[in-house]
Structures are given as structure tokens and as C-alpha cells.
Nucleic acid binder design. Structure first.
Lengths: 112, 112
DNA sequence: CACTTGCGAAACCAAAAGGTTTCATATATA
DNA sequence: TATATATGAAACCTTTTGGTTTCGCAAGTG
């Protein structure tokens, strides 16, 4: 099943798992050992992350290592980016407005 | 209640609502009119978006206009950004690897 | 071989999500 | 003022979620 990345990162535990294995892959037990909830619960989260393509699992002996595939976050990143100019715009107007106030107070300068 | 932005954008309907009001504010009825689900259901989504700070509502007569506050997406954007170098790094290594292959094929150059 | 580890999956649960209908209320409008 | 509009909220229902326990099995170890 190919899960939704947006939904996969909606849960704080799952974001924590990703942060945990972002720089170094860890086996399932080590990951779950870092949480208070049961191994089974953590395992389910890992499964969801895997279904979203955010985690890949490779077997090494009896251990399974979880590798983070952060590139998958691009889906989310791109969605957000399309709106960035919107809020930049807003900030720009605010800045312009403040500048105007500033100029009004110090009088003088009028170049735009 | 201050909801989680990650969770607020996890639902596709809510993302659609945001896209719908990103460039122009719309009243509740107009927004819900664009969906097949009931007005009440859409209203609940709007409520969740509002609790996450992604939407603000302003009354105008008997209508309530929904204004998108996309800046709130920065929370998510920032979280993702901290990992961007990770996948860029990976792409860089891939590029380096491909370069190496290329060099091997065209023989010659050996500088690493 | 017997025993310990590290998993994967199933059975079961309570709470949260996402919908629907219905009802009440504040604002226009005829 | 009586009627139509635009909402907000409550009551209810079905699925999903996020957890827990328990069981089975394959891979190392003494």
C-alpha cells in the first residue's frame, strides 16, 4: 500500500522516529527501545512510514535496519513552496508599510 | 485549542480548502459548495484549520469569510528543511559516482 | 540441540476522525 | 413582520488510529 506522506508525518511519534534514523540507520528494537510505548506499537508506526516510502528496511542477520528516505518529504515541501510567495508578499507589504511609517516620521527621503 | 499544523494538513480535503482560499478569501458556504460532502463536514474541517492557525474567520454581515494564513506552514517547512542537506548529500554522492563511472569509461582523469 | 533474540502478525480495545441529520440563531429581504 | 440565508453546534454513527497482549518463527549462541 502506498500511503500518503502528509498523513505519515502527521503523527509526532513517527516524526520522532524519522529524526532518530535520519543520520544513522537503526534496527527495529533499538528504535522502539527509545519509546515508552510497546515495540508492537512502534513497529506499526514504522510500517506506516515504510508504506509512505519514508523508511526502507534491510535485513542483516536476524536484525532489520530502518533507513530513512527523507527525499520523500519533497512531496510536502513542494506543496508548501507553491504558497511561499504568498506569505513573503504579505511580509513585503508589511515591510513597505513600516518603511512608509518610518519615512513619515523622519520626514525626508522619498525614493521608491 | 491550538492544534497541530502537521495534523491539520494531513487530510486531503483540508489541503484542498487551503488551496481554495489561498488567493482569495471565501465564505463558508462557497467553500463547502465546492465539495460533495455536507456543509457541516466541511465546516468541521475549517474549524480544525482554524485551530491550527491556518485559517482565520472574519464576519461580514451574516457571512463569515475564511482567510488562509499560509505562513503557518513554516512550522512544517522548517522541520523538513533541517533534513534537506541529507538528501542533497545523497544526490551529490550519486552524481559523484556517476561522474566517476563516466571518467572510467572515457578512461583518463584520475583525481579524487 | 536447547535457549535467547529480534521480528512480524493477529486479536482485541478505547478514543479520535470524518460524515450525516437536525435544530437554533443572527442577518438580510420582500 | 414573515421568510430566506448563512452559520454554529449538538447528537449519532461507522471507520480509522494508536495501543496492548499474545503467539509463532527464523537467526544467533552456549
Amino acid at each position: 500500500m502506498t500511503r500518503d506522506v502528509f498523513q505519515a508525518i502527521a503523527d509526532p511519534t513517527r516524526r520522532e522516529i524519522l529524526g532518530m534514523i535520519a543520520y544513522q540507520s537503526l534496527n527495529v528494537n533499538t528504535v522502539s527501545g527509545n519509546f515508552k510505548i510497546s515495540r508492537a506499537a512502534v513497529y506499526k508506526h514504522i510500517k506506516i512510514l515504510r508504506e509512505a516510502g519514508l523508511v526502507e528496511i534491510k535485513q542483516a542477520g536476524r536484525e532489520r535496519y530502518c533507513h530513512a528516505k527523507m527525499e520523500k518529504l519533497l512531496t510536502v515541501s513542494d506543496w508548501i513552496e507553491q504558497y511561499r510567495k504568498l506569505w513573503n508578499q504579505k511580509l513585503d507589504s508589511l515591510e513597505a508599510y513600516l518603511d512608509k511609517l518610518q519615512n513619515k516620521n523622519t520626514a525626508a527621503k522619498k525614493e521608491n
